[in-house]
Computed example of a mutant assay.
Amino acid sequence: MKSSAAKIQITGLDDLFGGIPAQVAADQIQELSLRELHPFKEHPFHVADDEKMREMAESVAQYGVLVPGIVRPRPEGGYEIIAGHRRSRASELAGKETMPVIVRDMDDDEATIVMVDSNLQREKILPSEKAFAYRMKLEAIKHQGQRTDFTSGPLGQKWSRDAVSANSPDSARQIQRLIRLTELVPCLLDLVDQDKFPLRPAVEVSYIPMDGQELLYNVIENKSFGPPSMEQAKKLRECSERTELTTSLIIDIISDEKPTPLQVTLKNKCLSQYFPKDYTQKQIEEVILSLLETWKYQQKGAVTDGSNS
């Protein structure tokens, strides 16, 4: 395998390998066969064989996995990966047979929270990945809140949102929006991932029943309309709460566009022949506005004279 290890900053291994610190004693780290390692159940993060993965595989081939993964024993045998899915795949691509890991006994809730927090440190994450990851973490925290061995009192909704935002790059409010994306039909969620459907309008659409969402996607896909704006998304949501959405109603709403604001651009080459070279932009703007005011009054005078003739 051709090495491109020079492109990788060794000091940035936390970024390269998922941000899991290796602050453990050497006897806690085990070399386990890759065949014994299994993905986390319903793991919401994609492990893509992209350029980043190829770089990681080249580094693993040359240096090995320098930051161990975290796994837990499975009742049926083997180990479930909590943190280290990309490292496991990179090891496989690098031709390794084993990977260093830390084995920990965790219940489902603890494992889910660690899995989500470790993956959220990645550089690039799709909105859909964050959405389902945050929902999994929220459900785990709420479940813990119902257990007396984790908390002495009930877990309120606001407390839950704040707890989810701990160790996360997003605010509690943003997390709430992202979790709403899990209520979108997959085809609309794909548009969000492709940066074709902004987050805030998508959140509004997530409150529309599934059949209405599918109709909206068909209109976007087959009628050559763009996704709804924030104002249009709110109208769609309001209409869906009063009546059943139809294709014609959706088209009426998302085709109701505001007029595009008039913009005039004057190039420097055109302006330079009318103004001294030492004039600032502010001075030029003041002169142009003054001339336009004069022109406006002249036009009013011409209209008045014409009406009196």
Rank of each mutant, 00 (worst) to 15 (best):
L289D: 00
N218K: 12
I284H: 07
V192K: 09
A140E: 07
Y79V: 02
M115I: 06
I20L: 10
D107K: 01
I81L: 10
L34A: 03
A6K: 05
E42L: 13
D252Y: 07
E286H: 13
D193L: 05
I82F: 05
A94E: 07
L215V: 14
K296Y: 14
M115H: 15
L13P: 00
L66G: 06
S160D: 01
F132C: 00
S152A: 11
A57F: 03
L66F: 04
C270S: 10
E55K: 10
D195Y: 12
R89Q: 08
P201A: 13
D105W: 03
S168E: 04
I10C: 07
Q62N: 09
S152Y: 10
C239N: 07
V101P: 04
L66P: 02
K269A: 00
K234P: 01
I254H: 07
M230I: 06
A140R: 08
I284S: 04
E231T: 12
E183G: 03
P198R: 11
K130M: 14
D190R: 15
S118D: 02
P201D: 01
V219G: 13
I29S: 07
K258P: 01
R72F: 11
Y207P: 01
C187T: 14
L13F: 04
V205L: 08
N222V: 03
N119V: 12
D190C: 04
T260S: 05
R177E: 11
R86F: 06
E80W: 09
D109S: 11
G145Y: 02
T265M: 09
S206N: 12
T98E: 04
Q263A: 06
S248T: 10
V114A: 07
I113R: 14
V303P: 00
G18W: 04
P201S: 11
A83C: 09
D50M: 14
K234E: 12
R72Q: 13
N222P: 01
L188I: 06
T11W: 03
I8T: 06
T148E: 12
F225T: 08
R122L: 07
E293Q: 14
V116Q: 02
E293S: 10
N218Q: 15
I179W: 02
P209T: 01
D105L: 11
I141G: 03
S229E: 12
P127K: 07
